[in-house]
Design a binder for these strands. Sequence first.
DNA 1: GATGCGTGGCG
DNA 2: TCGCCAAGCAT
Length: 351
Amino acid sequence: MNRAKLPSFPDRLLEWWDRHGRKDLPWQQPRTPYRVWISEIMLQQTQVGTVIPYFEKWMDDFPDIRTLAHAPLDDVLTLWAGLGYYARARNLHKSALICAEKFSGNLPATAEALCSLPGIGLSTANAIISQSTDQPAAVLDGNVRRVLARHAAVEGWSGKTAVQKILWSEAEQRLPAARGADYTQAVMDLGATVCTRSKPGCDACPVAADCQALALSRVSDLPTPKPPIKVSEQTVHMLVVRDNHGRILLEKRPPAGIWGGLWCLPSGSTEARALASLGIAEVETEPLSPFEHKLSHIRMTICPLLLTAVEGTQVKCPANLGWFTSSEQDGLGLPRPVSNLLKKLNNGELN
DNA sequence: GATGCGTGGCG
DNA sequence: TCGCCAAGCAT
């Protein structure tokens, strides 16, 4: 038995990160609070490779909090289109307004104040603090949960409060005394590149020596997977209403719920009646091929219906409805299934 | 405590 | 192909 004392968990991780960690991600140069904040929100449930181009464009368009606060929400949502979880974009904009008003245009410095902003929970708050001030602060995202569940052999799905509590405690116990920024990046990089969900590289792991899951041969079944949920089936009728100029009627969705705040094809029978009240006559009604759109909880069957409006019938349009040309649609940032549908329509690939 | 919220990558 | 799920948070 080797009784030589191991370096601490954070020391081993930091030494590993110095040699193998990622140091060239866009939000790491420079690591300002604003840039770290935007990156952390974009990275929620979203992979690094997907985020990078959105982050670059964001920094071009909204280089600081005040610019973001003064920007129209529509511009923010348009940039966000395609990233998903659009509440994140609405919350960023709202938070920027709060910061401009209450914190003189800066992000607040404490975790408690950060958590008061919409869209920021404890993990994101601590990620912002540790990466922008270099103070050690515990984060608990998917990568860290996997590393800790294995290293400490924590049983149970992390969605359970009791399990979450243990993982937070394990995260805090492992914090270093200094180098908070590098440590946060290190533990996330370890989860992303070594302690991966499948085929983890335990041979290359700096903390394998005291990994409980490895000692117990439990690496492959920790962390405990999420119990299966049942996916609901939903049918949505999307109306493709064209006028004689080839423009298409779009509807701005209410701020909450799916695709909140985005322009979208009008959906459902209620909207169909609303169209009738606008005086839009249909000279032609043509069902297009239904297609599936899968979300995490819903299997959505989208049934497009092609309508052609008679000339001069679009008299008065409520604020949440508008006619858009093909090039105007591109600038709006439509939800993926909608933009895909319209693209096929323009290419004549439908019917 | 359970659900809702998007999209794309990957085995 | 298809199911899982990724740098979570709000309600």
